[in-house]
Structures are given as C-alpha cells and as structure tokens.
Design a protein around this nucleic acid. Sequence first.
DNA 1: GTCTATACTCGGATAGAC
DNA 2: GTCTATCCGAGTATAGAC
Lengths: 210, 210
Amino acid sequence: MAPSPETPQDPAPIGRSGSYSKGVARRKEILDRALEVFRERGPEGTSLRRVAEEIGVSHGALLHYFRSREQLLLALYEHTETHRQEQRAEAEHAESEDPGAVEAMISAARVNVHSPGYVQLYSTLVAGALEERNPEARQFFTERFERVREAAVQRLRRQQESGEIRADLDVDKLAALIVAASDGLQTQWLLDSDIDLEGSLRMVEDLLRP
Amino acid sequence: MAPSPETPQDPAPIGRSGSYSKGVARRKEILDRALEVFRERGPEGTSLRRVAEEIGVSHGALLHYFRSREQLLLALYEHTETHRQEQRAEAEHAESEDPGAVEAMISAARVNVHSPGYVQLYSTLVAGALEERNPEARQFFTERFERVREAAVQRLRRQQESGEIRADLDVDKLAALIVAASDGLQTQWLLDSDIDLEGSLRMVEDLLRP
DNA sequence: GTCTATACTCGGATAGAC
DNA sequence: GTCTATCCGAGTATAGAC
C-alpha cells in the first residue's frame, strides 16, 4: 500500500540463483506468461496448477522456477511495483516541483485506490512476510520498507531546509510514521470507503508546518 | 467490544425450534480445546486436521462448528483480544487518570511487542478480510476498526476539551490516522526491530499539542 | 539444470447416517 | 442438528529421467 517514491534501483530477480543465463531467460518467459494469466483472471482465485496448465507447463516445472506460490506472487508484485515507479518517475519529471514526503504518499495512495487488488496483494504478501518460515519474503519487504522510508527521509530533509516543515523533528521517526499511516489508512479504507484517506494524510501535512 | 452477545457466527441461524444452547456449548468446548492446542503449538504450523485429531474429533466435525480454518483463527483472535481488553480495563481502572488517545495506542502496542505471534495473526486475518470471498472476516474487522476508531474519538474529544491537544482538528480523521499509524508501525517493527515504535507515536502526541 | 511423475497433507464441499 | 465418510483440487516435497 505504500508503493511510495523509491529511488529507482536495478531489478534483481527474486528467486533463484545468480547465474544470469538461459535459466533466467526461461524464468522471465514463464513469468511473463503467468502475469498475463493473472491479469485476466486475477491472482485471487488462480491456483498454481491453473496457471501452469494455462501457460503449458507442468506445475512441477513452474515450481522449479518459483519455489512456491508465494514467490510467484512476490514476483508479480515486484513487477507491478517496478512498472508503477517508472510511470511515477516520468510524471514527476514532467512537473517542475518535487513533492513533499506526505504529498508523495498521497499521490501513490490515490493510484492504489483505483486498484484495490494491488493493495490486497500487498497486504497478503506483507502478512506472509511476517511469518518465520518465509525468509525471502521477509527480506524483500524489510528492504522495501527501508527504501521507502529512506526516500521519505530525503524529501523531509529537503522540506526542513526550505522551511516548509518544522526543523525540530526527527526525520527517521517521521518517515516511519508517514509510511505507517499511509499503509494503515489504505487498509481501513478498503474495509470502509467512508474513510477519508487523503484528508487524514493532509492532516499530517498540516501538523508538520512550522 | 460489540454490543452484540458474543459469537459472531451462530451455528443455528434461523432454525426456530429450541435449544441453541447445546450447540453453542459444544462449540465453546471445542474452541477451548483448540485454543489449548494453539497455545502449545502456535497457530502457524497447526493445520485444521492436526487440531481436530489432537482434540479427538474428525476434521469434518470441526468444520461443522467453524465454517473454515479462518473462522477458527478468527475465534482465537477474538478470544485473545477480549481477554486483553479485560486486563487493560482493570489496569486502567487502577490508575486515576484516563490516558489520551495516543497514549492508549502506545500502551497497547507495548504489550504487542512482547507477543509478535499475536500481531502476526492479526495481520494475517486482516489481509484475509480484504478479500472479497471472506465476508464474515471482513465484517468482523470493519466493525472492529469502527469500535477502535470510536474509542479514540472519545479520548480525543476529551483531550480537546481539556486543552491538552489542539481543538481545531477533525477528530474523526485524526482517529483513523492514529489507528493507522499504530498498525503500520507495528508491521514495520516486526520486520525491523530498529524501528522506534513508541518514539514515532510519541511524535504524534507532540504534534497535537496546541 | 530442466523437467516429469508421484505422493503426501492440506482446506473444503458433499452426502448421508444417526 | 451433529457428525462420519469420502472426494476434490490445492501447495509442496521428493526421486529420478533427460
């Protein structure tokens, strides 16, 4: 839910090993086909076996490239997120002004509001990452949160220097808070669309002013 | 808690003739035994069938009282939450002063920090509730969020009247924000214990002062 | 390394016995 | 209403064929 502005980074494929070779290409091919299936049917009701059948491989073969269904969904999420970031980077480039930390979260959240499936997938994967037995998902989201927070810190620092927000606040704590608020509000909004997601976030912007 | 009497899912919906009581009692008996199994083994690796076997019923029988594994986990969560609230109510009664909205979230979060399994269960169930196909879990958490927000609103109003916090802020938006921040920060903390959960929440307290 | 075959347990739905 | 028996498709682990 907080696919907020991150510093663009090289795509390091999530699952298997380092050798960039034929296997990676095959993996990518399978992933592309799988993405298509998910796009048509949605991830929710689509089983590993269905996907495998649909793209013409055995489910065992699919599992050879993605160690688990969760890994496949993680790759799906990562792909979508990357795509969004590229779009955002473009849009941002078009504008002359850099958005503030809160503003950036708002614009990200505004997009999410139109694709609840994405937020839901995010929520599922994060919940899975909290479990002890999913170390890879855990690492993925730990690093993702770090990146998102760090991006927020950069913006906050700039805003402090320009006098846009209070200079006496700890930017690290503040960054964690803003990311948390954005995530949590999106969850509440999905359960109750009366929640004023943007309004609540704007309130934070208000509170930060000197 | 909800004004409604206990169990959100009644095994005897419309059947008019007599004895709800027996089925309800049996259900409660099974739940108690199941809670014990979860306490020993933890919910994570414990399958429906394991639980059923452990307490001496067929898994079919278990599913007769809890329509799904998720329902069983929901009952587990509800039971634990109720127990905690009772404890908190006592502790609160012992103190002379009512805590503020943020303070209340902090003390709740402080407890959670010592039982990560509980937070993880919460996270899993919330993620499940976001899916279309789980209307009961969805309703449960929709109502829960409403109650939690409403409780925060009450505290915020009192704090506004006493001049403890700014009076010009919309308490509804603020309540949603505080709940969101608390949830989101706990998630981040579970993935990275360097996160200063309490510090970030205290910052909110700070921002709200007139 | 890539993939097939197989088997296991899982959550869940069904039908029918009491 | 309570429960057993049974079946299905799911995710996943393993062995071994190529």
